[in-house]
């Protein structure tokens, strides 16, 4: 990965003056907002802790694994994703209106937000830097095969790619294909082989997982 690309994604150690200026600006803003009574410091901690430790792609992986083992649940998920996902207790902010998209031998779904960073928080947590970055937002819609290649993903010829640009408050969850050789795995075991990237639609799954692939387990 090119260093100059990376520095656009987040303020870096080699960027000391800018970073320390930002840190000071944020500290000053935090103390101002607390002093004015606009922010409860304990609430601030709860917001951060929720998305650091409680909500993440493990949620989505549980939904996917259930869809793989329970055809009735899968039908429900594809018909009314919001209700089906809520049955796990996953709901709320940035997941108010959910749609599930099933990948098959013929169709591969991939999700982007070209205008900002819309992402299904209750099932996947906060989006990774690459999802919010210019290269992904610019190219996912016009060069999806090139973007998939950046992730080391190749699809068979003849597979149709459908890219979903999240331009309103609908949030999309991709149900990846269940890999071959997983017949012996329990629902819990299956959830452990799902990756966040597969639920965005930039990876396909294999079993055992390819080296270097970050599963939710």
């Amino acid at each position: 990965m090119a260093e100059h690309d990376h520095s656009h994604d987040h303020a870096h150690d080699h960027d000391h003056p800018r970073l320390s200026e930002l840190q000071l600006r944020v500290k000053s803003l935090e103390s101002l907002l607390v002093e004015k009574g606009l922010v409860d410091p304990a609430a601030l901690d709860v917001f951060i802790d929720t998305y650091e430790t409680k909500v993440g792609p493990r949620n989505g992986a549980g939904v996917v694994a259930k869809a793989w083992v329970d055809p009735d649940f899968k039908r429900w998920l594809l018909r009314d994703a919001g209700a089906a996902i809520k049955s796990f207790g996953f709901e709320g902010r940035q997941g108010e209106h959910m749609v599930a998209l099933e990948n098959t031998d013929r169709v591969h779904h991939m999700v982007v937000c070209t205008l900002c960073s819309c992402y299904p928080w209750p099932v996947l947590g906060l989006p990774p830097v690459w999802y919010k970055s210019a290269p992904y937002r610019a190219r996912a819609i016009s060069d999806p095969r090139g973007v998939l290649a950046d992730f080391g993903t190749t699809l068979a010829d003849g597979v149709e790619i459908k890219v979903w640009d999240s331009t309103a408050e609908l949030r999309y969850l991709v149900i990846p294909q269940r890999p071959a050789g997983t017949e012996h795995l329990s629902e819990e075991g299956l959830a452990g082989i799902v990756t966040r990237n597969a639920m965005i639609g930039v990876e396909t799954l294999s079993y055992p997982p390819k080296p270097g692939v970050e599963t939710v387990a």
Partner: peptide
């Protein structure tokens, strides 16, 4: 930026943390 050229490949950070540094957490929470 949909359809723009010139940004280069998508670069993926392995084992990416939820936030890069305390200030990002605070901006998110605030």
């Amino acid at each position: 930026m949909g359809g723009m050229h010139g940004f280069g490949p998508v670069s993926v950070e392995p084992d990416e943390p939820w936030f890069h540094g305390e200030w990002e957490k605070k901006v998110f929470g605030l």
